[in-house]
């Protein structure tokens, strides 16, 4: 442990599923352009889909309906707007409507800084619809856990991956302090920036708890989330997706509701992610997290 990257973990899970589980993996250009950042194994059971986003997702859902537990690879999360219909309208609804589940593991990769339709993080949309499990694993251990949960249950699962995490080998522990001023809850790629932001804030005499969130839905309000907040009495949820109607605000609301303490949200601005700086509307980085906390505490 500690040696394997997230990418290697995904590749190994996929290999096991295809070779030992009668699994199937579908996606576009999965065997070209570097095998999706080296996350796809070169084994039998890989189906190259043509550029038919809606039909492709429907075909993957059909394979799930006959029990193949497909891994459906989406190279850029923005395409989920097209892929979404069979997932939302069929896979997520079939269990409640018909008592028949449609377990499909949707690997949705996010990126940063490559323009308006390749830099999106769309997990919030899927939290909105009943029937999904939604998670955003950023470490090898978290990814293994996500897969375990998928195999132990029969729900369709949206796995919000981020390319910034693929070379990561480290697990990330929560950091809590007795006299913290604020608890920072982080989701997706901002998790890699929050530690440095907390160090900068520490230099200003501000002590931050850091709590990592992997499971977005169902969002289980547990002691690990509530205890640091009941001590710091102030929280901030930081996410890589848009703030309006997004995971950050939704989870902030849950935490406030459960504790009565104010919890703020920090996600993307309500602006298009253009290709060129300074119009990229980037994911909250160290500086933005630092500035936001300073503002809140003023």
């Amino acid at each position: 442990m500690g040696q394997r990257t997230v990418a290697e973990t995904i590749r190994e899970i996929s290999r096991r599923h295809l070779e030992e589980n009668n699994g199937i993996l579908l996606g576009q250009a999965v065997t070209a352009v570097g095998w999706v950042n080296n996350t796809v194994p070169n084994v039998e059971g890989i189906i190259e889909l043509p550029m038919t986003e809606v039909a492709g997702a429907g075909i993957a859902v059909g394979a799930a309906m006959v029990g193949r537990r497909p891994i459906f690879v989406i190279r850029f999360q923005d395409f989920l707007i097209l892929n979404g219909s069979p997932l939302i309208n069929y896979a997520a609804k079939s269990k409640e409507l018909h008592g028949r589940s449609t377990p499909i593991f949707v690997r949705a990769l996010a990126s940063e800084g490559i323009g308006p339709v390749h830099s999106g993080v769309l997990h919030s949309i899927f939290m909105h619809f009943p029937g999904f499990r939604v998670c955003s694993p950023m470490t090898p251990g978290e990814y293994e856990q996500a897969w375990r949960v998928f195999m132990e249950h029969d729900d369709p699962m949206i796995v919000s991956e981020h390319r910034d995490s693929l070379q990561n080998t480290d697990e990330m522990e929560d950091a809590t302090h007795e006299k913290a001023d604020i608890t920072l809850y982080t989701i997706s790629s901002p998790r890699f920036a929050v530690g440095r932001a907390a160090e900068m804030l520490h230099k200003e005499g501000i002590i931050c708890n850091i709590v990592h969130i992997v499971w977005l839905k169902p969002f289980e309000v547990m002691g690990r989330y509530l205890e640091p907040l009941s001590q710091s009495k102030l929280g901030l949820v930081i996410d890589a997706s848009f703030e309006i109607c997004g995971a950050s605000r939704s989870i902030a609301y849950e935490l406030t509701n459960n504790t009565g303490y104010p919890v703020k949200a920090l996600g993307l601005l309500d602006k298009t992610k253009c290709l060129c700086p300074p119009y990229q509307n980037k994911v909250p980085d160290t500086q933005v997290i630092y500035d936001t906390v300073m503002n809140i505490l003023q």
Binding site: I24, I47, V54, A55, G56, A57, G58, I59, A60, V61, G62, A63, A64, M65, V66, G67, R68, P70, S85, P86, N89, Y90, K93, S94, L97, H98, R100
Partner: peptide, 23 residues
Amino acid sequence: FGHHGLIGENVPQAVGAALGSGK
């Protein structure tokens, strides 16, 4: 297999089911 009322949704599903099951 049950339809959900989204017209045409059963066509990709049927294709995926044939792919997945060989039936």
